[in-house]
Design a protein around this nucleic acid. Structure first.
Lengths: 345, 345
DNA sequence: CTGAAAGCGCTTACAG
DNA sequence: CTGAAAGCGCTTACAG
């Protein structure tokens, strides 16, 4: 393994100062075309790769972005969102010479510490804020740390002030997907429809539930069947048990993710119910498995890959130019399959 | 946001040279206890955090480790292994001030480029090698790049030479789990047992299949029913279709991961088969969903969290001391549930 | 036990 | 258009 070429090697070989090499390589004005070409040629010949740590020390930026995930590993493993999201992020980073620093922390408690470490060590130039929460403590924290960020979806505008959002938001509206799923069930004749949602402190859980409630209300139907969970299959199963034990049990259940919906199918089968005749079920995420369970699962499709790509592009724009506009992606839509059907007469 | 304290601030405040501060902070010998204490106190007061990029530039190490995952995002999302593995890795890194750089590439083609980038940019001090393959091209690549690594499991010792492995291996033997699963099926009276495996180029796929074949042979049973897949639920489903279409169809199928096994349950139900009366099914990974599908899935449990933690500790030991011993974790074991039962008389 | 200095490999005013 | 120099914040021989 030969020693890596440095900027000094390039400068010597090209017969110029290293400052000029730096200018040429970074497309700064003030280098004659001729000199620039010579420098670039030499750099290529020597297979010169600028040292990231040296650049970082000079420029005080790390050429990396961060993602902190505060979820229990079990839930993470069951939920296909993050792997796809990350793959999308990588797709955008790859061409830009940026790296992704990932931090998985079991719970919220270690979350703040993870952001602080990332900031203190200047490991990243910005972060993604996923799973936005009500009064999200991460937003003031990141502002205090001076850490740029993009949010997935719009955070709540804080209380009284019509505070302009501190960070650009990359949004994929899930409301239309939920509305379509619920309307689909209503159209099939369902009148008792339940909603098994994720943690209420997460914005998307309450937002989706609002869409659920609004759609039922508009149809003059009751909206009392809402169960909160932690997104695990385990709680999806127990929520289903609970709902099916009700005297006035639902004929359809809308779930906040696919693993819970799949667990619900298990519970229903266990009880000898026939799907969708006795019970209709919908999921959320449209994971690969949705097509292959029995009955195949009606689910709401988002596009985490595209979301990750857009979020990464936006974050890079923000960290490099200091500004980035909000981005709105195609809204979620329902994919109907065999787990939903007409209510039994 | 006040400016971060630097080593110079600490030196000035403590009335010593910055070299001495560096020595004190890094527990180097040659600093009087008294001076050391004073320096540490001042550092704490100023909330001094050494700059990672400055240290990196001086020491030529990045205080980060890397993981390159070459899998299609869909498969990644369905497979709970990596999220748990990563969570385990983080657990070990957290206390060591190390970061994890993650690179997700869709296919093998971009894999080499990812490692090269990580090395060229000196982003990481070492990497994890997961999903070991036959004649794994990453091993010579990493050796050429001079990049330390730990492997999950032992790589093949190359051809003729009894080459000592280039990297420490952290292993979790999956063989006992497969043997136990197959033996469990044999004990239940199954005589036609199929194996739906992952990509043959992956060592674990062929190793597990060897365990499968050996166990059947020892019982004097046929070993002809082996189907290779890419680990997706889609191919798990089609493999199942294929096997069930056989004239002499199996009464039990062993799957290489849970998503495929769950898809198989779907296929079986679709065909009106009863489980486990008409068909027994086992998975691999024991993902959260395994307990909640119907019938609940017999699966082989590994411990990706522990594996990640052990792998990270080993990698850090290697990058800091230059040597690390192999580690053997508790082998995999079968968790029997309702998807396996006696063969119908 | 402690200090002064060089060096890691870049970027960026400042002169010319 | 180009060069010489300082500086980013550390570590590490080298003197004393």
């Amino acid at each position: 393994m030969k020693r890596k070429a440095t900027i000094n090697d390039v400068a010597r070989e090209a017969g110029v100062s290293k400052g000029l090499v730096s200018f040429a390589l970074n497309d700064r004005p003030g280098v004659s075309t001729e000199t620039r070409d010579r420098i670039l040629t030499v750099a290529r010949e020597l297979d010169y790769q600028p040292s990231v740590s040296a650049r970082s020390l000079s420029t005080r930026s790390s050429y990396a972005v961060g993602l902190v995930i505060a979820r229990d590993p079990d839930i993470l493993g069951a939920d296909p969102f993050f792997p796809s999201f990350i793959a999308g992020v990588e797709r955008a980073l790859l061409t830009e010479g940026q790296a992704l620093v990932l931090s998985v922390v079991g719970d919220d408690e270690h979350e703040a510490a993870a952001y602080q470490r990332l900031a203190a060590d200047a490991r990243v130039d910005g972060v993604f804020l996923t799973d936005l929460r009500h009064d999200d403590p991460r937003i003031p924290l990141l502002q205090r740390l001076g850490m740029p960020a993009v949010t997935l979806g719009h955070p709540e505008t804080s209380g009284s002030e019509p505070a302009d959002a501190p960070y650009p938001a990359v949004s994929l509206d899930d409301t239309p997907g939920v509305v379509a799923a619920v309307q689909h069930l209503i159209d099939l004749g369902h009148r008792r429809i339940a909603h098994v949602i994720g943690p209420r402190r997460m914005l998307h859980a309450t937002r989706r539930n609002a869409a659920f409630v609004d759609t039922l209300r508009a149809a003059g139907l009751p909206t009392d069947l809402v169960v909160e969970t932690d997104f695990t299959a385990a709680q999806g199963a127990s929520a289903t048990e609970h709902l099916l034990d009700l005297a006035d049990r639902p004929t359809a259940i809308v779930f906040g993710n696919d693993p819970m919906a799949i667990a619900a199918i298990g519970v229903a089968h266990e009880r000898g119910l026939r799907l969708p005749d006795d019970l209709s079920i919908t999921g959320f995420d449209d994971s690969e498995l949705a097509r292959f369970v029995y009955p195949s699962l009606t689910s709401v499709r988002t596009d985490p890959l595209l979301w990750g790509e857009a979020a990464a592009r936006t974050l890079l724009r923000l960290t490099t130019t200091g500004h980035a506009d909000d981005v709105d992606l195609e809204p979620a839509r329902v994919i109907t399959r065999a787990s939903t059907g007409p209510v039994r007469a």
